[in-house]
């Protein structure tokens, strides 16, 4: 177990190393002046010469990379001339909003998805199943920015129930949460429904019926816990994806998280910030997947942790 976790963490570190090499190489080999890219679009001449000096841009590439790496390892992610402060500080500020939104999305998606899945599995005429399938396809086929704008128009502008963007209160959390949680809950419901229907023919469910249990009791007490495991696997994997995948939603709703910052940095060509989000995102994905795998192994005794 400890050995497994240690190996996985080692792999995460290797991955981060590779990612940092790739991003740095990309920036150096992109058209234009790498000093300009590393300092950000708004840097003045003084800043440019400082950056050249710091990264050793007039030296061979391996020295440049060694210097970049040394700065990374000491926690220096670069300096954002657009925000006029170190990138690391800027990132730290944005962690909380992103984590808050991600958590709220997961909770809402699960709370809506599980009842929906159980309900539609109970009424499995093929018509309903097909309808749920199509609605599911529709919700995942609509881009987040379009769905978000739709919610802004209906719930924010027409009905004036929730603020249309910004950060601060619970109300601000509602629309961005729903934008992602609605399609995901339909998706979870779909998987859960399929699992429940597959389990309906298994021996232990038949035994429970034979004991004379009520239909609902069989579903909730016997089938559901077994059908939930794959859904929870997906949920925990999605959590990792969420921390890096919220960018567009954060941008639409002006939610000051990491993705919002990454998009704005990309738009203003503030390269150090984007580079830092790439590294941070890699760390999130690595740790998230590790936690997901450990969780699944705990929930489902059939899963073995190896390789």
């Amino acid at each position: 177990m400890i050995q497994y976790v240690a190996r996985r963490i080692l792999w995460i570190l290797v991955t981060l190393l590779c990612i940092s090499v790739i991003t740095f190489t990309l920036v150096l080999s992109a058209p234009g002046d790498p000093a300009r890219a590393l300092a950000g679009a708004r840097a003045d001449d003084l800043a440019l010469s400082q950056v050249r000096e710091q990264y050793g841009l007039d030296q061979p590439i391996y020295i440049q990379y060694a210097r970049y790496m040394r700065r990374l390892l000491s926690g220096d992610l670069g300096y954002s001339y657009a925000y006029n402060r170190p990138v690391a500080e800027e990132l730290a500020d944005k962690l909380r909003p992103t984590a808050l939104l991600a958590l709220s999305i997961i909770v809402v998606a699960v709370l809506m998805g599980i009842p929906l899945g159980v309900f539609t599995a109970q009424r499995n005429q093929s018509k309903i199943g097909q309808a749920v399938n199509i609605v599911g396809l529709m919700t995942i086929s609509i881009p987040a920015f379009v769905f978000g704008l739709l919610l802004i128009y209906v719930l924010g502008y027409s009905l004036r129930w929730f603020p249309i963007g910004g950060y601060g209160s619970i109300g601000h959390l509602v629309l961005p949460t729903l934008t992602v949680a609605i399609p995901w809950s339909v998706w979870y419901a779909n998987i859960l429904r399929t699992n429940l229907l597959n389990l309906a023919h298994s021996d232990f469910v038949r035994t429970a019926h034979a004991k004379g249990l009520q239909k609902w009791a069989v579903t909730l007490r016997h089938a559901l816990p077994n059908a939930l495991a794959p859904v929870l696997t997906m949920v925990s994997m999605d959590l990792a994806a969420l921390l890096t995948g919220l960018a567009i939603v954060e941008y639409v709703f002006n939610w000051p998280g990491i993705g919002w910052m990454a998009v704005r940095a990309a738009l203003s060509r503030d390269i150090p910030v984007v580079m830092a989000t790439v590294l941070l995102g890699g760390l999130f994905i690595g740790l998230g997947n590790l936690i997901a795998d450990l969780l699944v192994a705990r929930l489902d005794p059939r899963v073995q942790l190896d390789n």
Binding site: T15, T244, A266, L267, G281
Partner: peptide
């Protein structure tokens, strides 16, 4: 390795660097 790269952020980096 490719699957543990935060693709959207790298895409942002690339399109910010390229025109």
């Amino acid at each position: 390795l490719m699957m543990s790269v935060p693709s959207f952020f790298v895409i942002l980096l690339l399109v910010a660097l390229l025109n």
